[in-house]
Design a protein around this nucleic acid. Structure first.
Lengths: 351, 351
DNA sequence: CTTGCGCATGTTATCGTTAACAGGCCGTCG
DNA sequence: CGACGGCCTGTTAACGATAACATGCGCAAG
């Protein structure tokens, strides 16, 4: 008990006793058992962050924002990776409830209603990051997918593109739906018809981006621009375009949601919307800890952060030639075009 | 007690009671309190992974390897990010001891002897990843830095390079020292003198890579090739080269330790040594859990995994002109060279 | 002189689980 | 017929910290 008082600086202790206890602690290398404390106090000072893909620097950056903030406020963080699987997510949620984390920051895998409900039944506060859910009474932090998509697509329309394809993630994931909505709004506002055959739903990964691009290249009318709703999708698309002998931006413009961290790309040339990922993580952790401290209002709060469009060299006006389907079997015609223009991924001429 | 027996499937319970308990559990949404279990059993079934830079995909991949393996064997993982700071590291170690994690997987920030000693004093097993330490009785898993560096440098020597600069991390970090050792051995074996002024120690990040390259370009004799011992350093170097108007590989070859995950680079063109990062994480987790299970031998084990060299377009024979110092104040001469050759980061001509 | 308060330390009970032990019932075997 | 072992359930104590309460001392106010 006396030791407890010394450690927590609570109650009365004589300076002499305090000193002796401290000496003993140092001598024995005593460290308080956090488990016992947590069991007694019913608080673990631990948050959990569940993301769908820890390989994605977007989520890594969110994780840093969460961890830095949580740590500064005395919380530890458990990271969980669901690989976009709702089953894995629910499994993690069960473990986290048993481990009595104080709250969960969640990037929902798809619907994820079950996970959130389960957490709430057990009295655990939830903050939803990046994506939104139809569940009431949950704090949410994300960037504006609809507006970001809208500005990218408007940019491409402004360059003269009339046939713009979207490559996106699962239809059930809110970011995917919102970005398609922004795309549609930009088309409508420009008086263009938004054709469903130009909207490709897939997965948020490289393989899917590749696969969707191959499909796209067989679609009529052939798009002159691609809007990829995630960086990995863009990588896959670029690989497919390169294999097809198409150059960017001459044969195909491409714009992407999500930028890479500075210094990551050897040569940043993708027109992109950059999300404030670190800030999303930071704000989410703050909302959570505020709520745990009882300083939060009863109703749920939603923070939508603005994202920033960065125009680079991957978007340009379309060729003046009439759009025509790309012939996979006759690449020679394309090859000539390649040789007269800039290849994919080329840098600016250094000054 | 009866409930405990049902949950753990231990002892005798009548089928009837078991069923009734299960119904009650489902009705109440009961979840066992892991804290109490852990307090009682003195095992948390939790590992910690301390890395120096979670932004680096190399460490992210290690983290995935650790988490997947640990999870499959019933362990949870706490991730900690030290930003290469020994102070942060020690702070984390203290927290982890208090939280009574079962073991720590550590990428040591530099010396890190204190952290490891503290952990060992408290009876926590440690597995050191990626880097090695002078501490006895610690399991270690890493890839072969010396051999990887040696093969990269030998490759460049084979291309005809005589002046090869190294840009590396802190001298006290073992990977940095080992890669420089491999570099020196390759030079010596080729009968070349290894000149100290071509060895630049800095930090494992983009800014340092940039800064070291600027310094390098003012060094005589001017190197015709760069060996960057980490991907971020290479990124910084490439930025500096681009700003200086130098092309890769014509004006400067560059090879790098650490590859990026497949699909990450729009156009993989860097000659690199790829480390088996996922495997490192996996093996480390396995060693740890084996030791926790008591199945490990008393003496420390060290696993050194081979790494693989991938030759790409960033390395080529040096120009035939005599090496001469690069004039920052007269870029015009260089500019001409740029226009007649491939710019930095350019792709192959698509077929 | 007594009461009461501030200070310092010690005791008890509790958080939720489970190892260890206790006890009761039934069937079988010597 | 009694003893013993298998089956089932219940009680006690312990993991380590700490809130709440108890105790004891010294000093000042009434």
């Amino acid at each position: 008990m006396t030791v407890s008082r010394v450690i927590n600086d609570s109650g009365y202790i004589s300076p002499d006793t305090r000193a002796r206890v401290k000496v003993a602690i140092a001598e024995l290398g005593y460290m308080p058992n956090a488990l016992a404390r947590q069991l007694r106090s019913q608080r673990t000072k631990t948050l959990a962050l569940i993301v769908t893909d820890i390989s994605n620097p977007f989520f890594t950056t969110i994780a840093r924002g969460v961890e830095d903030t949580a740590k500064a406020l005395g919380y530890a963080v458990m990271f969980c990776n669901t690989y976009e699987s709702e089953v894995e997510e629910l499994e993690y949620v069960r473990v986290l409830i048993q481990r009595r984390v104080d709250g969960v920051l969640l990037v929902p895998a798809a619907g994820s209603v079950d996970s959130i409900q389960l957490l709430q039944e057990h009295g655990l506060p939830v903050v939803v990051l990046d994506r939104h859910v139809r569940v009431e009474q949950v704090d949410q932090v994300r960037s504006d997918s609809e507006a970001g998509a809208h500005s990218l697509v408007r940019h491409m329309i402004g360059l003269g593109h009339r046939y713009i394809a979207v490559l996106t993630g699962p239809q059930v994931v809110s970011t995917s739906a919102d970005r398609v909505a922004g795309y549609r709004r930009a088309l409508t506002e420009a008086g263009l018809t938004s054709a469903d055959e130009q909207v490709h739903f897939g997965e948020y990964n490289e393989a899917s981006g590749y696969e969707m691009t191959v499909r796209l290249l067989a679609t009529l009318p052939l798009a002159t621009a691609i809007f990829a709703t995630n960086n990995f999708i863009a990588f896959g698309a670029i690989r497919a375009l390169r294999e097809a002998g198409l150059t960017i931006p001459e044969d195909m413009s491409i714009a992407v949601f999500d930028d890479l961290p500075k210094g990551w790309m050897l040569d940043p040339f993708l027109t992109a919307v950059a999300q404030p990922a670190y800030e999303i993580g930071k704000r989410a952790a703050e909302l959570m800890i505020e709520r745990l401290a009882g300083d939060a209002p009863a109703e749920a709060r939603t923070i939508v952060l603005p994202s920033e469009m960065i125009t680079r060299r991957s978007t340009a006006p379309p060729r003046q030639v009439a759009a025509m389907p790309f012939q996979r079997t006759a690449p020679s015609r394309r090859k000539a075009a390649v040789l007269t223009s800039q290849p994919v991924g080329q840098t600016e001429n250094p000054a």
